[in-house]
Structures are given as structure tokens and as C-alpha cells.
Amino acid sequence: MGKRITIDPITRIEGHLRIDVEVDGGKVREAWASAQMWRGIEVILKGRDPRDAWAFTQRICGVCTTVHAIASVRAVEDALGLEIPLNAQYVRNIILCAHGLHDHIVHFYHLSALDWVDVVSALKADPKKTAELAQTISD
């Protein structure tokens, strides 16, 4: 039995997450991820007008909202056997692409960047040299 490390809360995510890691001899032996929040959206959805489902489902996450909404809309359409016009499919694809672009930027710069960038050292960086370095590796 090694050392148990608990990290709670995990920050820069949507929701509340706890990670437990068991370290033995410098190696991770076991790890557990546990969600610390349950809101019961599935229970709340029961018995409601299916046209409203997307709005409830979308509130699962405000960072990646669009995908939850579209998934819910597709599930309802599938259950009702509805056929989606081609133009509507185009519109949805455009919405999803726009969301993908937006979400990548938010996710990298606002959420995960601090895991990869040491902010304190970054402040000592020389912007000119950094730009030059970037130039040498880009086309």
C-alpha cells in the first residue's frame, strides 16, 4: 500500500471532480476519478415535452453546450422517426463546426493552458526571441 494523494477540487473544468492517486515507489499503482456532483437531469426530463429536452440536456455543460443540445435533438428525432431535411443538416454541421472552433480556443487558453505553461516563468520570457523561435519552426 503506497501513498494516497487526493486532489479535490480539480480546477479549470466544468463540474466538480475529485482524483485519488495511489503512488508506490514513485509509480502510480491505482487511480480513481469521481464526480462530486449529481443533478439528476435524466430524472427531471421524465414526463416532459420532448421538444424541450434539448434545453435541459444542454445545461449539462455550459462550456460544450452545443454538442449536448444536438445529441438530445438527435435522440428525440430518432425516437420519433423524423427525417431531417438536407439544409437543416447543413445548418447543424455549421453550428457544430463553429462550436468546435470556439470550444478549442476556450478549452486551451482558459482551461488547460495553465497545465502546460508555467506562468511565473512565462513572465520572464523574451517575446522577441520567442517570436523568432516560432518563426523558425513555422512555414
Binding site: E14, G15, H16, M37, R39, Q58, R59, I60, C61, G62, V63, T65, H102, I105, V106, Y109, H110
Partner: peptide, 16 residues
């Protein structure tokens, strides 16, 4: 403080 929510409210502030 963030509790039972979807973080959509914070998102409105961070809109790129």
C-alpha cells in the same frame, strides 16, 4: 464560487 451549474455563466464572461 461554482456549485450546481453548467459554468455557462462564467462562459459568458470569457467569450472570445
Amino acid at each position: 464560487l461554482n456549485f450546481m451549474e453548467c459554468t455557462g455563466c462564467t462562459e459568458t464572461l470569457l467569450r472570445a
